[in-house]
Design a protein around this nucleic acid. Structure first.
Lengths: 227, 227
DNA sequence: ATGAGTCCTTGATTCAAATCAAGCCGCTCC
DNA sequence: GGAGCGGCTTGATTTGAATCAAGGACTCAT
């Protein structure tokens, strides 16, 4: 995997133009993490901003009693640890390579320096951070305002946005469940009830099909329960 | 309330220096909201970035069924709607004046323009947004990883940070409870159990005193329950 | 193949917090 | 004064989701 390609394919940096671009490439460090590697721990000093070029990274927090909560999964073209880097915090979460993963690391202090010099970069990052806040916003809204069925319904609607009515679940069900702050048992039961109610249907190729977007939306809004 | 003072007393803008400062003051609009006013609704076009000079603003979301979740309460010196302004979203939440409130509004497009021109401002805002992400981060962690006692314990520890061991609860208990995603009944019961366990104590002037920071910390971490 | 190890589903049970309900302040407003 | 109201506490009950438990499907390594 090539540093220039990763930078170019990253939403946050794709529009950075020439003098800055070389500058970033100059400081960037290519890193490979075999599947299962812990990239950093909660509380550690933040090494810098990571761009994911290939693979998958899971960002999660852990309670003192060992319970895990996935905050987001980072796919190629996305970044992580930007918040800690920009805000100069210690890592507020754990990051782990779920698959064999290639990252580009923009080291903390060098990146800070680049930010101070480069106004375009700054503006890009502002937009990116705003999006990140927005994501957490929705997560809080989801967890505090919706019940299990509502969360699953909303998730299905989002997941289907691109592909019409077919939804191929991304990743393992237990991980999806965890992201929605549910157990895999509850997730499984909820899907079953949605299928039994005729709102979802299974397809031959182990994907799901949305039968009624409207009813799914109603459940997502917490209007009548599904029994 | 005076525009210059509000700008100066706002953490995000206090370090903005002269040419930008006048520019911001030039675009700023002073607004007064009587207690109870709804400043904007979820889904509306975002009017711009608000700085609070005096009073108190509650930012909250509402589910389709009417359940409310307070996201944060904005005190003088703080800002709200920065995220929507910077990210160009519609308002993701409601904002309501809880007390008679004076705000300075930096209108959406003018502020966008200022950001494009002013690198210092950009850097300030980046730091501010990073802090905002951090806040939501902690909220998610709190709600997903801690039980009722853990959340109350953590809240008490934070609230006491400044004043030694004395905690005067800010605002109504039912609102505090709601911010922790609890009902006021559960909040009340939890406080009682902490008092009965000798971890907190009431003072003569209806405040609370932390008796054992250590045990409070343990409960916040989810180590042994308090019965 | 055989066995171990996941993941997923489904059922039975438990549990934490919400809801429902009642009573008690401490108010403001006639 | 006292009627009315909102906030707070405390008790009884309900409920939604977690936990505990068991079986089936699949993969992978031997």
């Amino acid at each position: 995997m090539n540093a220039e390609a990763i930078l170019h394919d990253c939403k946050l940096f794709s529009r950075v133009t020439e003098p800055s671009r070389s500058n970033l490439l100059g400081m960037a460090v290519l890193q490979h993490f075999p599947s299962g590697t812990l990239i950093f721990r909660q509380g550690e000093h933040c090494p810098g901003l990571f761009l994911v070029g290939a693979g998958l990274v899971r960002v999660f927090v852990l309670s003192a009693t060992g319970k895990q909560q996935i905050l987001h999964q980072v796919v190629p073209g996305d970044t992580f640890a930007e918040v800690a880097t920009i805000g100069q915090f210690d890592c507020p979460a754990f990051a782990e390579a779920v698959l064999d993963t290639d990252c580009l690391l923009l080291p903390n202090h060098l990146f800070q320096h680049a930010l101070r010099e480069d106004h375009q970069l700054c503006l890009q990052l502002l937009g990116g951070l705003a999006g990140r806040v927005h994501h957490f916003f929705e997560l809080v809204e989801d967890i505090t305002l919706r019940d299990a069925a509502g969360r699953v319904a909303r998730f299905m609607l989002n997941a289907a946005d691109d592909n019409g009515d077919r939804v191929l679940l991304p990743g393992l069900k237990k991980d999806l469940a965890n992201q929605l702050n549910l157990t895999s048992e509850t997730f499984s039961r909820t899907l079953r009830r949605l299928i039994d109610a005729g709102i979802l249907a299974t397809t031959e190729d182990q994907a799901l099909r949305i039968v009624s977007r409207q009813r799914l939306q109603q459940i997502s809004d917490g209007l009548f329960p599904i029994f």
